[in-house]
Amino acid sequence: MLDRLTFPQPYLSLLLFIVWQFLSNGVSGASIVMGLILAWLIPQITRGFWPERRAFVNAWKLPGYIGIVLLDIVVASVSVAKLILGGREPKSIFVSYPLELEHPLAIAILASTISLTPGTVSADVSDDNKLLLIHALDADNADEVISSIRERYERRLKEMFQ
């Protein structure tokens, strides 16, 4: 009974509380009370869905990673815009990317990053979490795609999830 009163996912609770303050147009007494109730209630309701493994050993590296991803989005958008407006047929390729990450959350973040940066979309993860299927819009060969993703994103994520 006592563990029903705790916050089983402290980071999730903090995030929910902050998002509720943003949504309610300015911090007030009512929004703080409601935010606390939601931050307690939602993790309690959904606790069965959350995996037990601890994530984010080096969470302080996350802002730098987000900055790199945003920069890449802008740079890659321009090249994809050139390709779309250029009239040339794109040379598409499906790549099977061998994953070095093991944590499910790390794989989810990597797949989201790949989909967000224009030019590549992650299409599927194999059942044993070893391979990621990537569709690249315009690439010369598979090794180029694999090495650029490994250098830029996966290495940094590995440092975060030791």
Partner: peptide, 30 residues
């Protein structure tokens, strides 16, 4: 956005939609 892109790609692969001619590699069929 990545979640919906991923699930739409999975649906397309499940329905067996063929990629255009000239695409190297092939989608999985699991």
């Amino acid at each position: 956005a990545p979640v919906s892109a991923n699930i739409m790609a999975k649906a397309a692969m499940h329905m067996g939609i063929d990629p255009a001619k000239g695409t190297r590699g092939h989608p999985w069929d699991q």
